[in-house]
Computed example of a mutant assay.
Amino acid sequence: MDMRYLTLDKALDAWRKIQPISDDDKARLARRFSVDFNYNSNHIEGNTLTYGQTEILLLFGKVIGEANVRSVQEMVASEVSLKMMEAESRIKESPLTQNFIRGLHRTLLREDYEVHRTLPDGMQIGYTVHAGQYKTRPNSVITRYGDRFEYASPEETPALMTDLVDWYNEAEKEGRLSPIELAALFHYRYIRIHPFEDGNGRIARLLVNYILAKHDIPMIVIRSRKKTEYLEALHSTDLAVGSAPSDGAKASIQSISPFLRYFRNIVAQEVYADVLFVTKRGENRWWYDGECIEFRTPNYGKILNMMQSEPVLTLADIQRKLGLQPTSVKKLVQTLIDKHYVEKGKDEGSWHVFIVPSC
């Protein structure tokens, strides 16, 4: 299908047509989603682990290369939070609760911690970020256009969160909104409240997937390379809804049309990528961070397969097996390294391969 003509309905229909998928394909999708979601959701917020470091950490529990300790701890906690969310989504009859949201936040942040900052005027401030507790101080953001955007105050946050959760449970029962509309509107209303002192974006993306998974729709990844598009959709919606936090926390599905349009498009792209990941096989087709990579020469695929199957593989080994000139082998391997598809291991001739075959 030409992606220019992809719609949400077409993507969801394509997904339904390939059901049921095999247990092996379910496992492959789950592994891919775990790495993609945790890497991107945390990278959006400034986590410094690379995609490859994230994969090795989450799948094998190891840290490769130089890594910031806090970034490692954040990524591990993110994976635990993801599993917690997935388990909760499988309890179809259970309503969404504030206790669950606060527990998810506590799991994500792990513990309280101190923040010290220097304001533009030179003043030093310090405060405590509370894991699992709503904010105790005002929060705001400086938009990409330079203006300050205020979220709900600490005083009004508990009542607004009560309203948000009650609205969601009632709207889910009524069924007038589709699961996609529910997820988009919940995300937007939640972001406008910004109930915690830290971690609000990560929690919002977890809860969006909680809603999708609960309604048997594939979970999605908001890619960090498309962060600007994501923030612009939120900003355009803020302009339409109004700057008052209470307006944002009570926004209607009609008023968030810019974000809903963006969200429907993202869900369509992500769901259809899952379809292609399961159905489109080929030696020259590989996947990396949600993108299908089709190499122009089969030599890339051959090298990647050798790197995956052989514990020790030197450039001389590749040259001998493929019958290529040393300069050609060096260029092919360097391209794979530059694209972050592979990385040299600690031992001579060992490789970490991060790009995933489609078969």
Rank of each mutant, 00 (worst) to 15 (best):
V35A: 10
N40E: 02
H215Y: 02
P20V: 10
K214Y: 04
D13H: 10
I337C: 03
F295N: 00
A14I: 07
Q73M: 11
P298H: 05
A240F: 00
S34T: 15
E74G: 06
G52Q: 04
G46F: 09
F263C: 07
N200C: 13
G349H: 12
Q308G: 13
V69Q: 06
S358R: 05
T143H: 11
H194W: 06
V278Y: 04
P158V: 15
M306S: 08
R202N: 04
G52D: 04
K302I: 12
Q98N: 13
V63Q: 07
L96D: 00
R261S: 13
R102Q: 15
D24V: 14
A159Q: 00
R137C: 04
F149K: 13
N47Y: 05
V115G: 05
L6Q: 03
P195L: 10
L234M: 10
P95F: 01
L104T: 14
M75I: 03
Y134Q: 07
I21H: 00
L239R: 13
D147C: 10
K226H: 10
A184C: 06
G290P: 01
M306D: 03
Y190N: 02
L324C: 04
C359F: 11
E294A: 09
G65V: 12
R189H: 02
K302W: 00
T143A: 11
F60C: 05
S236H: 03
T314M: 12
Y230Q: 03
I293C: 02
S34E: 10
A14F: 06
P179D: 02
E170F: 09
I256Y: 02
E93Q: 08
R70D: 07
A268E: 03
T335Y: 08
V63T: 15
I56S: 07
G103N: 15
H43I: 06
T162N: 11
Y188F: 15
I211K: 02
L260H: 00
A27V: 12
K250R: 13
A273G: 13
S71C: 05
A249R: 01
S350Q: 15
G175Y: 11
T157R: 06
L315K: 08
D338A: 13
Y272N: 09
K26A: 10
K250N: 14
L109T: 02
V312M: 07
L182A: 07
K92D: 02
I222T: 15
I101A: 03
V115H: 01
V342L: 07
I125K: 02
T297A: 09
I101N: 04
D163V: 12
I266P: 00
L231N: 04
Y151C: 03
F37G: 09
E74W: 05
P138R: 03
S328T: 15
L6F: 08
V271F: 08
N42V: 14
G323E: 02
E111F: 11
R320H: 09
F33H: 14
S140Y: 13
A131P: 07
E45C: 13
L108Y: 04
N40T: 14
L336I: 11
G242W: 04
P245M: 05
S153A: 10
N200P: 07
L239F: 01
G290W: 05
D317A: 06
